[in-house]
Computed example of a mutant assay.
Amino acid sequence: MRVVKWIGRSAVLAIALTVAGCVAQYNLHGYTPSDEDLAGIVVGVDTRDSVEELVGPPSTAGVARSDAYYYVSKNVRHYGIRPPQTVDRQIVAIRFDQAGVVSNIERYTLDDGRVVTLSRRVTGSNVNDTPFLKQLFGNIGGLDLSQAFQ
Protein backbone atom coordinates (compact mmCIF):
# COMPACT_ATOMS: atom_id res chain seq x y z
CA MET A 1 0.00 0.00 0.00
CA ARG A 2 2.89 2.37 0.80
CA VAL A 3 4.40 1.79 -2.63
CA VAL A 4 1.13 2.78 -4.34
CA LYS A 5 0.96 6.03 -2.32
CA TRP A 6 4.60 6.79 -3.11
CA ILE A 7 4.04 6.20 -6.85
CA GLY A 8 0.91 8.38 -6.77
CA ARG A 9 2.69 11.24 -4.99
CA SER A 10 5.66 10.96 -7.35
CA ALA A 11 3.34 11.14 -10.37
CA VAL A 12 1.59 14.21 -8.99
CA LEU A 13 4.95 15.87 -8.31
CA ALA A 14 6.21 15.04 -11.82
CA ILE A 15 3.08 16.51 -13.40
CA ALA A 16 3.34 19.65 -11.26
CA LEU A 17 7.00 20.17 -12.25
CA THR A 18 6.20 19.62 -15.92
CA VAL A 19 3.39 22.18 -15.86
CA ALA A 20 5.56 24.67 -13.93
CA GLY A 21 8.33 24.30 -16.53
CA CYS A 22 5.95 25.38 -19.28
CA VAL A 23 5.13 28.76 -17.74
CA ALA A 24 6.26 31.71 -19.86
CA GLN A 25 9.03 33.84 -18.38
CA TYR A 26 9.58 37.45 -19.44
CA ASN A 27 12.88 39.34 -19.35
CA LEU A 28 12.97 43.11 -19.80
CA HIS A 29 16.23 44.51 -21.19
CA GLY A 30 17.17 48.17 -21.52
CA TYR A 31 15.36 51.36 -20.60
CA THR A 32 13.00 53.75 -22.35
CA PRO A 33 11.62 56.81 -20.57
CA SER A 34 7.89 56.94 -19.92
CA ASP A 35 5.56 59.40 -21.64
CA GLU A 36 5.34 61.36 -18.37
CA ASP A 37 9.14 61.74 -18.29
CA LEU A 38 9.21 62.78 -21.95
CA ALA A 39 6.49 65.38 -21.30
CA GLY A 40 9.05 67.24 -19.16
CA ILE A 41 11.30 67.78 -22.18
CA VAL A 42 10.51 71.00 -24.07
CA VAL A 43 11.33 70.93 -27.79
CA GLY A 44 13.37 73.97 -28.78
CA VAL A 45 14.43 74.69 -25.17
CA ASP A 46 16.09 71.65 -23.57
CA THR A 47 19.69 70.64 -24.37
CA ARG A 48 21.65 67.39 -24.17
CA ASP A 49 22.59 68.09 -20.55
CA SER A 50 19.03 68.85 -19.45
CA VAL A 51 17.73 65.72 -21.25
CA GLU A 52 20.25 63.55 -19.40
CA GLU A 53 19.21 65.21 -16.15
CA LEU A 54 15.50 64.60 -16.79
CA VAL A 55 15.48 61.05 -18.22
CA GLY A 56 19.02 59.74 -17.70
CA PRO A 57 21.87 58.96 -20.07
CA PRO A 58 21.02 57.28 -23.38
CA SER A 59 21.22 53.52 -23.87
CA THR A 60 23.55 53.90 -26.83
CA ALA A 61 26.00 56.42 -25.45
CA GLY A 62 29.02 54.69 -26.98
CA VAL A 63 27.70 54.41 -30.54
CA ALA A 64 25.17 57.21 -30.80
CA ARG A 65 25.43 59.76 -33.54
CA SER A 66 25.89 63.30 -32.30
CA ASP A 67 22.46 64.42 -33.57
CA ALA A 68 20.29 62.10 -31.39
CA TYR A 69 20.01 60.13 -28.16
CA TYR A 70 18.50 56.66 -28.37
CA TYR A 71 16.83 54.82 -25.48
CA VAL A 72 16.15 51.17 -26.31
CA SER A 73 14.24 48.46 -24.42
CA LYS A 74 12.81 45.08 -25.31
CA ASN A 75 10.73 42.43 -23.59
CA VAL A 76 11.64 38.82 -24.43
CA ARG A 77 9.42 35.81 -23.68
CA HIS A 78 11.02 32.45 -22.88
CA TYR A 79 8.53 29.58 -23.07
CA GLY A 80 9.65 26.04 -22.40
CA ILE A 81 12.07 24.72 -24.99
CA ARG A 82 10.94 27.15 -27.67
CA PRO A 83 13.41 29.81 -28.84
CA PRO A 84 13.07 33.23 -27.13
CA GLN A 85 10.61 35.61 -28.79
CA THR A 86 10.70 39.40 -28.63
CA VAL A 87 7.18 40.48 -27.69
CA ASP A 88 7.81 44.21 -27.26
CA ARG A 89 10.54 46.59 -28.41
CA GLN A 90 10.58 50.34 -27.92
CA ILE A 91 13.02 52.95 -29.14
CA VAL A 92 12.83 56.57 -28.05
CA ALA A 93 14.83 58.91 -30.27
CA ILE A 94 15.49 62.42 -28.99
CA ARG A 95 16.95 64.45 -31.85
CA PHE A 96 19.07 67.58 -31.52
CA ASP A 97 19.79 70.43 -33.91
CA GLN A 98 23.24 71.87 -34.72
CA ALA A 99 23.26 73.90 -31.47
CA GLY A 100 22.51 70.84 -29.32
CA VAL A 101 18.89 71.83 -28.59
CA VAL A 102 16.07 69.24 -28.76
CA SER A 103 14.39 69.37 -32.17
CA ASN A 104 12.14 66.29 -32.02
CA ILE A 105 11.11 63.34 -29.83
CA GLU A 106 10.03 60.08 -31.49
CA ARG A 107 8.91 56.70 -30.14
CA TYR A 108 9.09 53.56 -32.26
CA THR A 109 7.64 50.18 -31.31
CA LEU A 110 7.97 46.67 -32.68
CA ASP A 111 4.76 47.25 -34.66
CA ASP A 112 6.27 50.22 -36.54
CA GLY A 113 8.82 47.99 -38.23
CA ARG A 114 11.23 50.90 -38.76
CA VAL A 115 14.95 50.35 -38.81
CA VAL A 116 16.81 52.97 -36.78
CA THR A 117 20.48 53.30 -37.66
CA LEU A 118 22.36 53.82 -34.40
CA SER A 119 25.73 54.35 -36.06
CA ARG A 120 26.72 55.09 -39.63
CA ARG A 121 30.42 54.56 -39.12
CA VAL A 122 31.91 51.93 -41.37
CA THR A 123 35.20 50.30 -40.49
CA GLY A 124 37.32 49.54 -43.51
CA SER A 125 38.96 46.18 -43.83
CA ASN A 126 42.76 46.11 -43.79
CA VAL A 127 42.79 42.51 -44.94
CA ASN A 128 44.11 42.16 -48.47
CA ASP A 129 43.59 38.47 -49.22
CA THR A 130 46.46 37.63 -46.89
CA PRO A 131 46.25 34.19 -45.30
CA PHE A 132 45.36 34.20 -41.61
CA LEU A 133 48.62 32.63 -40.39
CA LYS A 134 50.69 35.14 -42.38
CA GLN A 135 48.74 37.98 -40.76
CA LEU A 136 49.16 36.41 -37.33
CA PHE A 137 52.90 35.78 -37.55
CA GLY A 138 53.81 38.48 -40.09
CA ASN A 139 55.23 40.97 -37.59
CA ILE A 140 57.40 38.55 -35.63
CA GLY A 141 60.45 39.11 -37.87
CA GLY A 142 59.93 42.87 -37.84
CA LEU A 143 60.80 43.36 -34.15
CA ASP A 144 63.71 45.69 -33.44
CA LEU A 145 64.83 45.13 -29.86
CA SER A 146 67.19 48.12 -29.90
CA GLN A 147 64.20 50.46 -30.24
CA ALA A 148 62.22 48.61 -27.58
CA PHE A 149 64.78 49.31 -24.84
CA GLN A 150 65.42 53.00 -25.61
Rank of each mutant, 00 (worst) to 15 (best):
R2T: 10
R2G: 14
K5N: 10
K5R: 11
W6P: 00
W6I: 13
R9N: 11
S10G: 15
A11N: 08
V12S: 14
V12G: 14
A14R: 04
L17N: 01
A20V: 03
G21I: 01
V23I: 11
V23F: 09
A24W: 05
Y26S: 00
N27K: 13
L28P: 02
H29R: 11
Y31T: 00
S34Y: 00
L38D: 01
G40R: 07
I41F: 04
G44C: 04
D46R: 01
D46N: 14
R48G: 00
D49K: 06
E53V: 06
P57L: 11
P58Y: 02
S59C: 07
T60I: 07
A64K: 04
R65A: 14
D67M: 08
Y71K: 09
K74M: 15
V76T: 15
H78F: 08
I81W: 12
V87Q: 07
F96D: 10
D97Y: 05
D97N: 15
I105C: 05
E106K: 12
E106N: 12
T109N: 10
D112P: 07
V115Q: 13
V115T: 15
T117W: 10
T117F: 11
L118V: 13
S119T: 04
S119L: 04
R121G: 11
N126P: 09
V127K: 05
P131L: 06
P131W: 07
F132P: 02
I140A: 12
D144N: 14
Q147T: 10
Q150H: 12
